[in-house]
């Protein structure tokens, strides 16, 4: 085993982690703030990447292309939100329907091809995997901007209504909040950042691919959970978003590590799913075990008292 090879792979893993961190923040908004497991992201991540790649290939400024990636992601979130609120389709199913539809739409965006290449020699990309130092800086700026904007937004009166909706829907309606509107708005914002992240990744890897978003929800959840486990439950909102990005970086570092250990890249998704399942199950099993222990102690005391 060559330790140098591992060390060499880490900066790239960090850059990927930062980019996926932006997408994980999107998942944080839907999953943690809005309490909505939104599967749209698997599709909207690719939508953002496809829009950015196609626009750059047609000559658009790569920064401006990211704005359109953001808007495309928001549109995807809007569809899921409307399916759920206007048509009463359960949340998970709304996301799955949009995700499925987006496969066709993403193919159309990429003019029927499953892959659109944007060469770094041909276009002035914001970041590329060939120049990791610059990629780290650009991805870092994207993360800071995302955290900054969302820290501001969720501190506003409007942002507070989205948080209230996720925390207690009945209370929100009793307090005059149109919870259908706040849910749609939350999903729009969430998927906007997911699309943005897709656009950034497309530039980083020099192409957009129809499969680039597959499993994005799992990576996002992994980042959210790892961030919580590693940094604990910090109360500051900006730090919590930061912890999610940190979780994404850790996730990619771990992936680099297991690949270095010799895991077949074919098995990566299985590895990811199992890891996330364990982390999701952990708090539940812990609670169950502690409860059992507590009742056992109580029964013991009860028995000894008699």
């Amino acid at each position: 085993m060559n330790i140098i090879a591992l060390l060499n792979s880490l900066p790239g893993a960090a850059a990927q982690g930062l980019i996926w961190g932006v997408m994980a923040i999107g998942v944080y908004i839907s999953y943690k703030i809005l309490d909505f497991a939104d599967l749209t992201v698997d599709g909207s991540f690719c939508t953002g990447g496809a829009v950015a790649a196609v626009l750059i290939a047609s000559g658009m400024n790569p920064l401006l292309a990211l704005v359109f990636a953001l808007i495309a992601g928001m549109a995807a979130g809007l569809i899921t939100g409307l399916l759920h609120t206007v048509f009463g389709i359960p949340g998970i199913l709304s996301g799955i329907l949009t995700q499925l539809a987006l496969y066709s739409i993403n193919m159309h965006i990429m003019h029927g091809k499953s892959n659109v290449t944007i060469s770094r020699t041909q276009f002035d990309l914001l970041l590329t995997s060939a120049s990791i130092g610059r990629a780290l800086i650009v991805a870092g700026i994207a993360v800071l901007a995302t955290v900054g904007i969302l820290y501001w937004f969720f501190g506003t009166s409007l942002g507070a209504t989205i948080r209230a909706t996720g925390s207690n829907e009945r209370m929100s309606r009793a307090q005059g909040i149109n919870t259908n509107y706040t849910k749609v708005l939350g999903l729009v914002i969430s998927n906007g950042f997911v699309g943005l992240a897709g656009g950034i990744l497309a530039q980083y890897q020099g192409n957009s691919d129809i499969n680039m978003g597959r499993g994005a929800i799992v990576i996002g959840l992994a980042a959210v959970i790892i961030g919580e486990v590693v940094l604990g439950r910090v109360s500051n909102f900006a730090l919590r978003l930061g912890a999610t990005v940190f979780g994404a970086v850790v996730y990619y570092a771990v992936l680099a590590f297991v690949l270095w250990l010799g895991l077949n890249s074919m098995d990566l998704k299985l590895f990811s799913a199992v890891t996330v399942a364990i982390f999701l199950a952990f708090p539940y099993l812990k609670g169950k075990y502690l409860k059992k222990k507590k009742t056992a102690v109580k029964e013991e005391q009860h028995a000894s008292a008699q």
Binding site: S157, A160, T161, A164, N168, M171
Partner: peptide, 29 residues
């Protein structure tokens, strides 16, 4: 448990109630 948002601070809950029936804009909560 129904009348308040558990994940939010006391003052945040009050702020939401204070704006009941009013527009929620982009000013600070």
């Amino acid at each position: 448990m129904t009348g308040t948002a558990a994940d939010m601070w006391i003052e945040e809950n009050l702020a939401i109630a204070a704006r009941r029936g009013k527009r929620h804009g982009l000013g600070w909560a």
